[in-house]
Amino acid sequence: MLKIFKYSLFDLIRSNWSIAYLAFYLMVSSSIIYMNGDITKSIISMMNVILLLIPLVATVFGAIYMYNSREFTELLLSQPIKRKSIFLGQYFGLAVSLSLSFILGVGLPFIIRGIITSPELSNFLVLIGVGLILNFIFSLLSFMVALRFENRIKGFGLSLFIWLFMSIIYDGILLLILIWFESYPTENLAITLTLMNPIDLGRVLIMLFLDTSALMGYTGAVFYNFFGVWQGILLSIAALSVWLLFPIYILLRYIKKKDF
């Protein structure tokens, strides 16, 4: 697995896409820092960018990569190596190269701005952590979709739909449910549904750490009491892990039977 991982990573970090992605993040973070002036506000602005774009880029990039390397994957499959090693190696190569672009692109401008010695460092690390997790989850999802659907149009369509669903449609449904059950206490329902969507979960975690004014009032207290204590944090981490481990399990099962 490590061999495949190494060469996929070598291949990917030299691709124009990775470089464009890195440049894009450098540009966005620098301009956000420049426009906000204040580092705390910059981190909050970055949150919106990260929650929207990381899943999108990971989705698109993951699908492109899988479709482009289809023939090479066949060559690898004909070599004396386990299927599991090939696909895990490729997946981690993909996820890690995306993560490197993200960490460098966001990290450098903030380091130049002095985040290392700032009291906001821990908040910034939470932001980076959430970004990384979303990166891994969404590149995995599009990786699987691309593996499942040989038709690129279908595969891209479905990947983008997954992104759109998780970013917006899911929240719309959540909002409608909460409005529908207006007369009942819906805090626990809201928490449960939030745990089930990694983008929402990432957003709530970031807010709890660095933007407490967003969660307020009685309900804010309920959410804070859930997510703010270690049980809640553990549960959130568990939910995110499920989002990562369950698809990997499905992937490993699927590739055993897959024809190439």
Binding site: N48, L52, I168, L174, E182, P185, T186, D200, F223
Partner: peptide, 20 residues
């Protein structure tokens, strides 16, 4: 206004949907 009527919707704060 939504959040005043249904406080549990505050969990959607800062989401893209709400911005839209």
């Amino acid at each position: 206004r939504i959040i005043s009527r249904i406080p549990s919707t505050s969990i959607l704060m800062r989401s893209l949907l709400i911005d839209i």
